[in-house]
Design a protein around this nucleic acid. Sequence first.
DNA 1: CAAATTACATAGGTAACCTATGTATTTCTA
DNA 2: TAGAAATACATAGGTTACCTATGTAATTTG
Lengths: 138, 138
Amino acid sequence: MSDSELASDLVVHAARLVRAVRRELELPAGTRIISLLDEHGPLGITQLADLDRCSQPTMSAAVAQLVESGWVTKKPNPDDARGTVVTLSGTGRDELRRVRRRHGERVAALVAQHPDLTTEDLATAVAVLRGVLQEGTP
Amino acid sequence: MSDSELASDLVVHAARLVRAVRRELELPAGTRIISLLDEHGPLGITQLADLDRCSQPTMSAAVAQLVESGWVTKKPNPDDARGTVVTLSGTGRDELRRVRRRHGERVAALVAQHPDLTTEDLATAVAVLRGVLQEGTP
DNA sequence: CAAATTACATAGGTAACCTATGTATTTCTA
DNA sequence: TAGAAATACATAGGTTACCTATGTAATTTG
């Protein structure tokens, strides 16, 4: 199978996985965001939107929800009165831990059903997905 | 990193990829469906819903759209007057080819930016995603 | 043959996106 | 250094893709 076919399948199967997980475990957009904050530390709205590949208004709304949930805090950026700084809260970190455990257990169980899939394969899959999104989307 | 952590990351990154692709290349729900029909041949609404992990009403609506686009045909099932048979049309097959080429080129280009990611890695990633979704979601 | 099951359709509602546009602040430039 | 351009967000309005609940017709079962 060509790289091109594989790449196309990657997308379709990724889409299917996301929907399957969303159905049985909940995968709100906020999860991606607190995950980003955990990885990068405090960020502005636009930075978050860029990292998550969504529009700025979408991120504004998503962050507003997270603030309401108490999972992040939003303060004006002291160095730039236009901007804000979104920070992961302790509650948010707890939530992230919970979500990760839920998803982890569930997906790991599915992976375990396939003896031909090793931990290394799983790591490779994550690396591919991560790599595809890194930097240059020219 | 544990299997559980990896599995959790798999989901989040998959979600991010799907949204990134949806943004710049279009990834309508119909794509997944014609992809299923291509893989399995003609199917009923409920069968499609099960395979795509969505509800039956969702699939009904999605198929209705596809019929309108001319990418599939819907005929009553001759063996069971309750059911219908959804079949991929020639136009649908063409569209699938187009979509695959678009996605393939785009994602393959991104993969190519990462010399450490081989075709084999890509194949592994697809196998993992496919495996995770296969059969038993008990 | 009545009851349960199955295959869809319809109705109504939500989450997560988007583009277009407005506003305040900061940076660039002539 | 004043005015123009750019930047960081917010708001408004709209779409897509889902969902659950429920109704209907046809099939299978007891």
